[in-house]
């Protein structure tokens, strides 16, 4: 029972930290661009403000538009239950890495449809492009997950994390690193980051993710924004837990847990810094340049699988 309590605490931490992580990335980007930037707690304030605002719903929209924010939130919360962050306890029997991919697919499926619902050109554009990006990146994610599944003999994320974390550094090889690289591209693609999409733009013709949220306002928008923040946090956490989990607490003792939490925070910050550097130093790619990058991720993941068998 205590195990599950710990897992719940872990999920709660992930859910609570999500806006902070977004705030930190924004702050880091601002520093790199010689701006002061908003305070790191600004996303919490934004969400709180949106929760108090009324919303306008398009008169062309159907039941789907009202349902989608709740489905997105629910799928992210359930996904958060499955991801070990600083301790290898979670509700892993509920679902494995494949389930995680499909939970994200669920949120995306609803979001892409809700984007079409109001009949706005921008929504359609976002929906169409999102499905393009996702259909190219999803195979890369699955293949990179299969690489770690091959290394550990299981697709259960908790088992993967604890097996890798207890097995010493001998497993770090080309397979693991290639898979991590593929998954890193997937983080950028799935979370609408530069160079795939620009999270801070509202320049009409280039946006993907923002275009899908264009018709949302008030509480609905708060839910959608919060879901994407949780998604980013989850992806970064999964990147560490599934590929390079060293430092996570595999035993429930106070020193291990404390170390696990500290290392987890450092890891989050590290990838946040990398994302901020990429976003400050690169421009967004043209839409039809994207397939090169995305299939690149697929090929990296495939090379990872190959190197497992061949090397």
């Amino acid at each position: 029972m205590a195990d599950y309590l710990l897992a719940l605490v872990q999920t709660a931490v992930l859910l609570a930290l999500a806006p902070l992580l977004t705030g930190i990335i924004r702050k880091l980007k601002a520093w790199m661009q010689s701006r002061r930037g908003p305070p790191i707690f600004q996303p919490y304030l934004d969400l709180a403000k949106l929760m108090r605002k009324g919303s306008v719903v398009s008169q062309d929209a159907s039941w789907l538009t009202s349902l989608t924010p709740y489905v997105c939130l629910a799928s992210m919360v359930v996904a958060a239950l499955l991801v070990p962050a600083f301790v290898t306890e979670s509700f892993g029997f509920l679902g494995d890495l494949i389930v995680l991919v499909y939970l994200f697919a669920m949120a995306r499926f609803f979001m892409a449809l809700a984007a079409l619902d109001a009949g706005s050109t921008f929504g359609g554009m976002g929906s169409s492009r999102e499905m393009l990006v996702s259909s190219l990146i999803e195979p890369a994610i699955l293949l990179s997950f299969f690489t770690v599944a091959l290394l550990t003999g299981t697709t259960s994320l908790v088992s993967v994390t604890s097996l890798l974390a207890t097995s010493g550094a001998s497993l770090i090889g080309p397979a693991l690193l290639l898979a991590f690289a593929a998954f890193f591209i997937a983080i950028l693609a799935e979370n609408a980051r530069i160079p795939i999409d620009n999270p801070s733009t509202h320049l009409e013709l280039t946006m993907i993710h923002e275009a899908m949220l264009l018709e949302y306002s008030g509480k609905d928008l708060a839910l959608m924004e919060y879901s994407s923040m949780v998604k980013l946090t989850l992806f970064i956490t999964i990147a560490w837990s599934a590929f390079l989990p060293w430092g996570v607490a595999t035993q429930v003792t106070a020193p291990d847990l404390a170390l696990g939490v500290i290392i987890f925070l450092v890891k989050l910050l590290a990838l946040a810094l990398v994302i901020a550097i990429i976003e400050s130093s690169m421009a967004k790619l043209r839409l039809f340049r994207l397939p090169n990058l995305l299939t690149g991720a697929f090929i990296l993941a495939f090379l990872a699988v190959m190197s497992y068998f061949v090397l």
Partner: peptide
Amino acid sequence: GGEVSSVSPILLAALLGLMI
């Protein structure tokens, strides 16, 4: 496959169904 991989559709359904 050495270690167990598992999924529980009914619990997932219950969680999603309750969460909404």
